[in-house]
Write a protein that binds this DNA or RNA. Structure first.
Lengths: 199, 199
DNA sequence: AAAAATATTTGACATGGCGTCAATAATTGA
DNA sequence: TCAATTATTGACGCCATGTCAAATATTTTT
């Protein structure tokens, strides 16, 4: 059979970059094809549809992103680790100029119409993964030195709350665009989560 | 001059309903025109462009929404009022079937490309208004019976945090779609904000 | 080595959306 | 009554998505 003349991964990276900058609906396959030096038809042949291409590109990004989160959460006190998580998150969707926002959030909202079921599944996994990692973090801290009673409810709920805040930040960032404010909210959230520790 | 043959407000309501259900980019002016019994050209004559029409429709909605928030925050203890706020918010973006999500958040994310500057302004105002109302609420409670020291930082930061959570909920709702979970996060947030009061 | 099989590339095409424009129609005011 | 003004209407250009058949480049088979 005839070998393909372009690298799938290259195209996915290029496509994701455009999707992230201009949104899924705001990016045409012609744009991507031109940027990637590929014929538009080849993209259809390789991926089937624009939404399918976005999905592939998104999943490639998501695994990379989750990996970097994993790394950032490395070690240190709970406060330090949570701070690192918020820092990474804010830095991630403040990257580029103008800032490009949170890809998962943007994609999810943009495709959350009748049809956009493919990304729902994928975004759910991303969020679930984040919640799981933060839950582990909290549990680990609890079984370590951190005193119980500084958390309201179970670690899972705390993690859910934290991930919710990060996604809220992704939204506010689009509205206000003020990084200092985002950091303030992040710090405040950590203070709340760590109970009296930071007051 | 010739009188127009349709009611602006009717069209805005119909348009907003479609935008909310199918997204801005997923809704065509032909759809709206058909639904409203108006020619497509008339919409361009009256509003200028699809984005401008969306903006008008959004602003009509936003003032209605802020009014209902105002009402819901009416009276009672701070906990009761915050609970009412979360309830209204969740109920709002769980309305319809399937749930239609938060219009401000969806619109903001969808149009947050290079050009979408019109809605940025409008959404910023909506969020700023929400933050201001919640700030007032907290300040009122503080000058009333509620003890100081149950809040971390100033009331403004607390309000910002709360609004951030509601927007995070709008995102998670799209991913998980589980209303019970949203309520759990809301309750948890209130518990955190009210310090030791609810523990 | 030649031919068959198979997958990719390519360009043409159909469909549908946005936005513009000139022509037409319906009022109001002089 | 007629001019001025604004709304409506339908045709048009442009661009996007997605489909299809023809052409092309390999690998495998004979």
């Amino acid at each position: 059979m005839r070998p393909r003349e372009f690298d799938h991964d290259d195209v996915l990276r290029i496509a994701f970059d455009q999707f992230w900058r201009k949104g899924v609906r705001g990016t045409s396959l012609s744009d991507i094809a031109r940027d990637a030096g590929v014929q538009r038809g080849s993209l259809y042949n390789a991926f089937g549809s624009k939404e399918a291409l976005f999905l592939c590109a998104y999943e490639r990004y998501a695994s990379e992103y989750l990996g970097s989160v994993q790394k950032a959460l490395g070690s240190g006190t709970l406060r330090k680790r949570l701070t690192a998580f918020f820092d990474l998150t804010i830095k991630n969707f403040r990257s580029g100029s103008p800032p490009r926002g949170c890809p998962t959030t943007r994609g999810l909202m943009e495709l959350a119409s009748v049809e956009g079921e493919g990304l729902d599944e994928s975004a759910r996994k991303t969020f679930a993964d984040l919640v799981a990692r933060i839950t582990d973090l909290v549990q680990e801290a609890l079984s370590g030195g951190v005193k119980r009673g500084e958390f309201n409810g179970d670690p899972g709920t705390a993690a859910l709350h934290i991930v919710t805040v990060t996604r809220g930040l992704a939204v506010l960032e689009r509205a206000f665009g003020d990084e200092a404010q985002l950091r303030k909210i992040a710090r405040h959230t950590i203070d709340l989560v760590l109970g009296g520790a930071g007051r």
